[in-house]
């Protein structure tokens, strides 16, 4: 196991900058999720760690070893990095049995036959496929194939485990099951893991630290609760959770919504137009307060999702008591965050 350090890494395809200077230090044994909208450069970043893509600038270190630094003309190819990688499309080799798939990296490491068989069995057991070693991949379900891929990556005892949206091709039920298993395996092995996903729930549930990427740059990196409750900008706030944003005017150190005072932390913000971030669960229906009109109601099982019209802006709220479209209600906010308008 090893740490991973990215120092100002960059990737350009021709004139297109895809990753624009990412700095990230991943500690030994840490589980980091790379999260962001489609095309933000998550996969590219992960592939640069793996060595499947050569950065156009910056340094990549695994442990203390510099594996990539164009300035010094250093590039260690993927086969020399000993990193396990799991792909979205499983990438289980169809011409080899399950056991042969898992044994492949061990063979290349030069381990002996008996030793290999033990390691293969152990890896297959770890993903609950101990009994299916003789099967061919086309005889397995998608979830089972992804387990084979996981076993193959684990069997080689990688320094770092890299996963690129490993669960996106699975249905919701399987996804949750495999997600739980990944966190068990992680607890058991203590592996350093870099996990790419565009599913915020996965990131929140699994990672020690979430790194939010946008346009090839890191917007925020921090433990899940921090990213959720203290987003550094409106983009992060909007990306994690289903926040709505109300346009407001900052006067002195306070704002008014529909004429009602709302307490905010306005430190460091200039006076003038600003936007107020509202999480759905931070909106409560109350006797008095800010007037709002219910425009639509969706029953979600454990709660109701309301779309409210607050001072002309559509706002999403999750509440426990039902309401009907057209109702005039009052709301108050348990938690808000103020951002300048120019942040996207």
């Amino acid at each position: 196991m090893a740490s991973v350090t990215l120092e100002n890494i960059q990737k350009a395809y021709g004139d297109v900058q895809v990753v624009r200077g990412v700095d990230l230090a991943i500690a030994d044994g840490e589980f980091v999720a790379l999260l962001g909208p489609s095309g933000c450069g998550k996969t590219t970043t992960l592939r640069m760690i793996a060595g499947l893509e050569e950065p156009t600038g910056g340094k990549v270190l695994i442990g203390d070893e510099i594996v990539s630094n164009p300035a010094q003309n250093i590039f260690v190819p993927p086969e020399k990095r000993r990193l396990g990688m799991v792909f979205q499309s499983y990438a289980v080799w169809p011409h080899m049995s399950v056991a042969q798939n898992v044994a492949y990296p061990l063979k290349l490491q030069g381990s002996g036959r008996a030793e290999r068989d033990v390691a293969v069995q152990r890896a297959l057991d770890m993903v609950q496929l101990g009994h299916l070693g003789k099967r061919m991949p086309h005889q397995l379900s998608g979830g089972q194939q992804q387990r084979v891929a996981l076993a193959r990556a684990l069997a080689m005892e990688p320094r770092v485990l890299l996963l690129d949206e490993p669960l996106s091709n699975l249905d919701a039920h399987l996804r949750e099951e495999l997600r739980r298993e990944i966190s068990l395996i992680r607890a058991r092995t203590g592996l350093t893991i870099v996990y790419v996903t565009h599913d915020q729930e996965e990131a929140l549930a699994l990672a020690d630290r979430i790194v939010i990427l946008d346009g090839g740059r890191i917007r925020q990196a921090g433990p899940p609760p921090e990213v959720y409750t203290a987003p550094v900008d409106a983009f992060v706030g909007g990306f994690i959770g289903k926040a709505s944003f109300l346009p407001v005017d900052l006067v002195g150190s306070g704002v008014k919504v529909a004429g009602v005072d709302v307490a905010v932390d306005a430190e460091g913000l200039p006076e003038g137009p600003a936007q107020l971030m509202l999480r759905p669960e931070a909106i409560v229906l109350s006797e008095s307060g800010i007037p709002a009109k219910v425009t639509s109601v969706t029953y979600l099982g454990d709660r109701h999702e309301l779309w409210l019209d607050i001072a002309g802006t559509a706002v999403r709220a999750h509440v426990e008591t039902p309401a009907a479209p057209g109702d005039q209600v009052h709301v108050s906010f348990t938690r808000v965050k103020l951002f300048p308008v120019d942040s996207p």
């Binding site: 190819p77 990193l83 990296p105």
Partner: peptide
Amino acid sequence: EAARTSGAS
């Protein structure tokens, strides 16, 4: 690519 990361040239 999976073969490359598994250690194959």
